[in-house]
Design a protein around this nucleic acid. Structure first.
Lengths: 112, 112
DNA sequence: TAAACATATGAGCAATTGTTCATATGAATG
DNA sequence: CATTCATATGAACAATTGCTCATATGTTTA
């Protein structure tokens, strides 16, 4: 069985003091969870240079309109994309430059 | 039924040309998926200032040694943490500054 | 206002995932 | 070399998730 003995009480104490609030850590994880799906990553890259409507995203990624719409909903809920209406079509774009920054930083790490 | 009509063929074409390779996009998603769990986020924050052994991380986060070890395995596999042995204990630390940068950038977005 | 079109949404299913529990590995110590 | 300690690992289970299919909503146009 575990003894759970603390090897370095000072360090543990220090960590506990500096750890951000539970709620913030949860929100942070949720943000990254949204980035953690290749479909959503693709959709965001699709919008990297210019805005697009749902049908065109689906066409470009060879996906169902429904699947794209479902994922746009998630992106929207997390303020990663915004949209405007133009007649019957909804035109989506990246919400702010944080999205591009986060993608770029992740790319740095992936490309080594 | 869907008509799948392309509303903006030029834009679709442009997107297809500039979209990163499938494999890279997948790796990128996998990287963020690792960040997308609050337990792993907590573990990384635990290591933000100084290295720690497994038992101390478990103690600080009030988690099972096993659960922490399983997650460290995931972080290790994605090159987000590294470790060294010191006798019986394994001492973990963040692998590079990309980790801190990504966490910080995510924090920016979460804090609005 | 009825039909066509673009998008959104809900239910259901298969696949993935994080935890627990039990046990294995590997190093230090008597 | 047997025991103790720190960590790692495998199996199993519950919960979450992304897709499909069918249908609903809302806008334009004939």
């Amino acid at each position: 069985m575990d003894k759970e003995k603390i090897l370095n009480p000072d360090a543990v104490q220090r960590v506990l003091e500096e750890l951000p609030d539970e709620e913030i850590l949860y929100d942070l994880a949720e943000l990254f969870r949204v980035f953690g799906d290749s479909t959503r990553i693709k959709i965001m890259y699709t919008l990297f240079e210019s805005e697009l409507c749902v049908g065109d995203i689906a066409e470009a990624l060879n996906m169902t309109q429904s699947a794209v719409s479902h994922q746009l909903r998630v992106l929207k809920a997390n303020k990663l994309v915004k949209f405007r209406r133009s007649g019957k079509t909804m035109i989506y774009s990246l919400d702010d430059d944080h999205v591009r920054s986060i993608l770029a930083l992740g790319m740095d790490h992936v490309e080594e």
